[in-house]
Design a protein around this nucleic acid. Structure first.
Lengths: 233, 233
DNA sequence: CCAAAAATATGAGATATCTCATATTATTGT
DNA sequence: ACAATAATATGAGATATCTCATATTTTTGG
């Protein structure tokens, strides 16, 4: 169980030439049928900074230009769930765009992250009338819904062994698994202790070999078979 | 663990006056900016019939007019997950509308169900250009994504006790809980045995009292407190 | 560079949940 | 109306996962 710490508000807003150069280089004009650049803000967040704090409704629809972030929710029993990884070209705040009442999740960067911030009060009405924008947002949300429903049913139907094997293969850097345990146990929804326990089993069985804090994949195929069990019939 | 049985294909298509009367009485013209009625089919499915079989891509976007249905997925280990309850005014097949490649889930009715069936080949292109339709579909999907992500994180953060209390309060008919155990254990993702075990605990503690196959709620407040634990901070 | 905080690591006992076996009762198709 | 099937019910042992305790190592802020 972890507690999330507020690290302070140090987000930087790019102005003038710096702003212009980002708007030009990473133009998102093609996502809309109407001119979008005038009121876009370009925000830079440092590593581990909160883009949105849990429960604080944002005033912007964000579009991630570069960097990575995580969506967190805190439960009443003190447990924390990492419910999603966010990458470049993802939206943030689309739930609040669509719903007046919404339990806003916390968003924390895991690397320096640059976002376009589109003010709701300027653009909300036009966005909700724009078929081009809505079509892509619909696809984005449909993928999200599919992903969550898959994770949900898999988490209940399979032990950690299978889900961890899948996660290792998805995140391995070449043949080496390097993720931080504290992040992974929040993501896979298991205790730190149990995660380490199953990793140790994988080592015992020869699937992985520990190298300092990292793990080298020794039997890719065994992990693959465990992960494949998650796929539907 | 349950196995899903195919009960045969006996869906009925309403024609002529019967079709017309449904189109008139339950008009969905307001969901689109273009005329939609010409090629709509009106389908009636009997109780327990499959509207879509797992893995069989549908040719229609369905809109449920009356009745109830369930979305099922079968895992490789033989476990079955009931991932969603479908009611009147829900869409079915929207994933296939949006994605060429999609692992189609099975949809089975739990009561007689009547749907409007909108042929993809007639309407897909227009739908994907229609802001009015897309806006509502976006909301529908955003709610679905939120629901799944909540269920996911809750299922990992809380024992069955809390999730079952919530489910009982949500589905109770007045003060009596009447759901079928075999359905509920697929939905909550636990074994039949364990579901019965926790129900028995609730009876021991005096939260419920067994009445034949049903359970009368005796301590609403105790159940409520258990369920409230699921809400986020 | 140091103290504090965070992350890693491991043991041991508790508990939530699963699997399997076996009856009994209710529902369904013919 | 009866046989087959599905649903309910309960026991007992196995296992997946959690909690708590404690130690070591790494990272971080000032």
């Amino acid at each position: 169980m972890r507690y999330l710490i507020f690290l302070g508000w140090i987000m930087e807003i790019y102005k003038n030439e710096k702003r212009q150069s980002y708007l030009k280089e990473y133009s998102i004009a093609q996502l809309f049928s109407f001119p979008i650049e005038e009121f876009i803000e370009v925000h830079e967040y440092k590593r581990d900074e909160w883009i949105i704090q849990e429960g604080m409704r944002p005033d912007f629809l964000f579009y991630v230009i570069e960097g990575k972030a995580k969506t967190y929710v805190t439960h009443q029993n003190g447990k924390v769930s990492l419910i999603n990884f966010i990458n470049a070209n993802d939206y943030i705040g689309e739930m609040e765009l669509l719903h007046e009442v919404y339990n806003t999740k916390g968003i924390q960067t895991s690397t320096k992250t640059i976002c376009f911030a589109l003010p709701f009060h300027r653009y909300r009405a036009q966005m909700l009338e724009d078929a081009k924008f809505l079509r892509e947002l619909t696809k984005f949300l449909s993928i999200k819904a599919t992903k969550f429903s898959a994770k949900y049913s898999q988490s209940l139907a399979f032990p950690l062994e299978n889900r961890l094997a899948d996660f290792i293969l998805q995140t391995a850097d070449g043949e080496v698994y390097k993720e931080k345990h504290v992040t992974v146990c929040d993501f896979l929804g298991v205790s730190y202790r149990h995660l380490l326990h199953v990793l140790a089993q994988f080592c015992d069985k020869g699937y992985l070999q520990k190298e300092g804090r990292h793990y080298r994949i020794q039997q890719h195929n065994s992990l693959y078979e465990l992960a494949e069990m998650l796929r539907n019939k």
